[in-house]
Each structure stands twice: as structure tokens, then as C-alpha cells.
């Protein structure tokens, strides 16, 4: 059994973005998705700070100080890209104009609740940024995360333990072990890594899992 690398999780999520989609990539793991869009598909990336057509990071030293991404790193604009102000950027997010919002997560519940904004660490002031807007507004919210925490606790829960970012919004989760759909039937395993088996996957998952009849092996290329 071979868990996916972070780049492989991003690769798998990228395969599901249709040609012509408008997509916001959250900070962290979701940002890597931009590197793996299949050839021949035009995907327009949105950035909360007023960019459609966000391009790759420029080579070191060649960035424009006035052009950054949501993580505040140097960015570029693709041909056809546009700038607009913050209120319009969030109108696009909140108003259902984005096809997909891909987000990281601390926890996802079996009803699609998302917790990704605070662990309530008393040593730091809390920050929410655009997380709640991105979770509430896109046509479809998908999550990319490791299947368990560093100390082995499940992230796919019956109920989230951390404070919620939004309730009932997550429809698909890509982890290093599986691709899961969340819907009226509960949490359905669409794909899982070879040699794992449902019982072993269930042991790492708090939510009750069902195996799709047409489930497939999760086998990305080496990256």
C-alpha cells in the first residue's frame, strides 16, 4: 500500500476540473493543483485579492511587487487575465460564480461540514481570511487533505471537533488514501489506493464509509 504524496493528491484533484472551469485554489495543498492541469484544458484561476487568470509564480527576482496571490507570494497574470477590486472578488466567490473552490481542511464531517480556520491555539490570535466565503459560496466545494493528522487521528469525522468554517458544503474529498464523495448516501469511497482495502481505510476514518459499486484503484503517476 502506497499513500499518495502531496503532489499526487493535487494531481488527482486536477484531473476532475473540466475545461472552461473557474476555480479558486485555497492556500497550501490546493495551490499545487495548478501545476497538474491536463494538457488542452483552459482553467481560469481566481484569487481573492482581485485576480482572474492567476498564473504561475514568476522566477525569483522577476516578480512585480504589486502582483501577489492569496498567500501573498509573487504571482503572474495569464493572457486574458483581469484585475478587479475586493468587493467584486468576493461577489464572485459568494454569489456562486466560481465552479469550484478547492480548500484544505483540518476536519471534514460525514455531512460535509468543514473545519479549516482555527484550531483555537491560545498562543495566536485567530484569523479567518476568505475561508468562510470560499466555503459558503462556490458552486461546489472540494477538499484536499491528508487522511489523518500527523499523530494518526482521522480527519474525516462523524462530526467536526474544531470550530466550523461552514456546514454541509463539502461534496468531494481527495486524501493521500482515497477519493470520497459526500452526499445523501453518506460518505462513499470512489477510489482508494491499491492494497489498502475498505476495512483498513475505515480504521483510519471516523465517518462510516460505503464502497461504491464501481470503485476504482487510486493510482496516480509518479510525480
Amino acid at each position: 500500500m502506497k499513500p499518495l504524496s502531496r503532489r499526487q493528491i493535487a494531481w488527482r484533484a486536477a484531473q476532475d476540473l473540466e475545461d472552461g472551469s473557474y476555480v479558486n485554489l485555497g492556500i497550501g495543498l490546493p495551490t499545487l493543483v495548478a501545476d497538474f492541469i491536463p494538457d488542452g484544458r483552459e482553467i481560469v484561476f481566481h484569487s481573492e485579492n482581485g485576480i482572474l487568470g492567476l498564473g504561475k509564480a514568476p522566477p525569483p527576482g522577476e516578480g512585480d511587487p504589486d502582483l501577489i496571490n492569496a498567500g501573498k507570494g509573487a504571482a503572474s497574470l495569464v493572457p486574458g487575465g483581469a484585475f478587479f477590486h475586493h468587493t467584486d472578488a468576493f461577489l464572485m466567490i459568494r454569489g456562486g460564480h466560481l465552479d469550484y473552490s478547492l480548500l484544505g481542511a483540518f476536519e471534514v464531517s460525514e455531512t460535509g461540514d468543514l473545519a479549516n480556520w482555527t484550531t483555537e491555539d491560545p498562543d495566536y490570535p485567530p484569523g479567518v481570511g476568505g475561508a468562510m466565503d470560499l466555503a459558503a459560496g462556490a458552486k461546489e466545494v472540494r477538499v484536499l487533505c491528508e487522511h489523518t493528522t500527523k499523530d494518526g487521528q482521522p480527519r474525516i469525522r462523524q462530526r467536526c471537533h474544531y470550530p466550523l468554517t461552514a456546514a454541509g458544503v463539502v461534496r468531494r474529498v481527495y486524501t493521500n488514501l482515497a477519493v470520497l464523495d459526500i452526499g445523501p448516501a453518506g460518505v462513499v469511497v470512489r477510489e482508494m489506493v491499491e492494497g489498502l482495502g475498505l476495512a483498513a481505510l475505515q480504521a483510519k476514518t471516523e465517518a462510516r464509509l460505503q464502497l461504491a459499486d464501481d470503485w476504482r484503484p487510486l493510482a496516480p503517476p509518479p510525480l
Binding site: H86, T87, L91, I93, R94, G130, M132, G137
Partner: peptide
């Protein structure tokens, strides 16, 4: 962070798009 930990500043946290709107 320093002012917050020292209790010298108040924070009202608002989602980014909500502040803007």
C-alpha cells in the same frame, strides 16, 4: 500578535468578503 497577547488591543474577526461588503 504582541499587542494582542499583552491584552493591549481588541480584535473583531470578520470574514474577508463580509468586511468588504
Amino acid at each position: 500578535d504582541d499587542a494582542f497577547k499583552a491584552g493591549k488591543i481588541e480584535l473583531e474577526l470578520v470574514p474577508q468578503g463580509t468586511i468588504s461588503e
